[in-house]
């Protein structure tokens, strides 16, 4: 009874929040609602017995995406600072040229496609969890989610890392919008960022370690590391110019790079892409996850920063 009430409240709350976030004309309000949605979503995953996804949602959905959206909003406001934000001629024109119903067409197509796929599924399917459990011994880890992500379907994770990197390249290739002037962070924020950074590092390392046998892993650890970077950036920290050139880029490509090298080596030795022998699987996965953690953390922090670091001239 109580469980039902809890789940019903979560489900309805999620739908309602999603609707409000989408319909809000005030962008800041939409972002706050979106952050709230992320928090509630994490609770929903917990109720669905999916702590792995809850952890990812907590780290990425509720934590970093909110900060990313807020930073994007700040840049938008700065870019349109000379125009009237609401109802500027450019925006009005855009409204006329772009009929509002147009996005509905591809959306309906996607819905139809998804509906077809769902309806054409066999009514009774056991799923792949039995196979995963059967092969868990040889995967090198005891957490089935990590086994799938880094062993059985390692190429998925490899491509995800590449997608993240491509996103950053996209941001970098855009003309970097300068941020407005930045006020002094004040001693409280300064101290907070200094004190929290070591804790972030420890928690990230912990999530990396725990991923081998319980919820956790490179993406969660990477976002915690990225959050540390975001906090330092917000507190006014900037790396020295020399570090943002080659060293930063090396860290950015380390994760996908290591993955590609391992993929090639395993293909030569085992004859199949990302096929690890059970004896080496554990250490290989740890190696891949560690490099991926650093890359993901650096990529997320760089995404938050916006433009290419060397374009940033105004900071001391």
């Amino acid at each position: 009874m109580l469980q039902w009430a809890l789940d019903a409240l979560l489900g309805l709350g999620l739908l309602w929040l999603a609707w409000c976030a989408l319909m809000s004309p005030n962008l800041l309000k939409a972002i706050v609602l979106f952050v709230a949605f992320g928090l509630l979503m994490a609770l929903a995953w917990v109720r669905l017995d999916a702590p792995d996804i809850a952890l990812a949602e907590a780290a990425i959905g509720a934590g970093l995406t909110g900060a990313l959206l807020l930073a994007a909003l700040a840049r938008l406001r700065f870019a349109y600072a000379d125009e009237e934000t609401v109802g500027s001629p450019a925006q009005e024109e855009a409204k006329v040229r772009f009929p509002q119903w147009l996005p509905a067409v591809p959306l309906l197509l996607v819905v139809a496609g998804l509906g077809y796929v769902v309806l054409s599924l066999p009514p009774y399917a056991t799923g792949l969890s039995t196979e995963v459990t059967a092969n868990l011994e040889s995967s090198g880890v005891s957490n089935p989610v990590t086994a799938v992500l880094l062993n059985f379907r390692g190429y998925d994770t490899l491509l995800e890392l590449v997608v993240l990197l491509v996103a950053l390249l996209g941001v970098w290739s855009l003309d970097g919008l300068a941020l407005g002037r930045e006020t002094a962070p004040g001693p409280v924020l300064d101290t907070l960022s200094r004190f929290l950074t070591p804790v972030f590092i420890l928690v990230a390392a912990y999530l990396l370690w725990v991923g081998a046998h319980a919820p956790g892993g490179a993406f969660q650890a990477g976002s915690v590391l990225g959050a540390a970077g975001v906090l330092l950036l917000l507190a006014g920290w900037r790396f020295r110019a020399g570090l943002t050139e080659l060293p930063l880029r090396l860290v950015l490509v380390a994760g996908p790079g290591a993955f590609v090298i391992v993929a090639l080596v395993t293909m030569l030795m085992e004859g199949q892409l990302l096929e690890y022998s059970p004896e080496q699987a554990s250490i290989l996965i740890l190696f891949l996850e560690t490099t991926a953690t650093f890359s993901i953390g650096a990529t997320l922090a760089a995404l938050f920063f916006g433009g290419r670091p060397q374009d940033d001239k105004e900071h001391t």
Binding site: A62, A67, L70, A71, L73, A74, F200, L207, V224, A235
Partner: peptide
């Protein structure tokens, strides 16, 4: 993770948005 990251969003708001 929530406890650690909730502050980051709030700080991003104060400092940026």
């Amino acid at each position: 993770v929530f406890a650690l990251l909730a502050a980051v969003t709030a700080v991003a708001f104060v400092r940026r948005a």
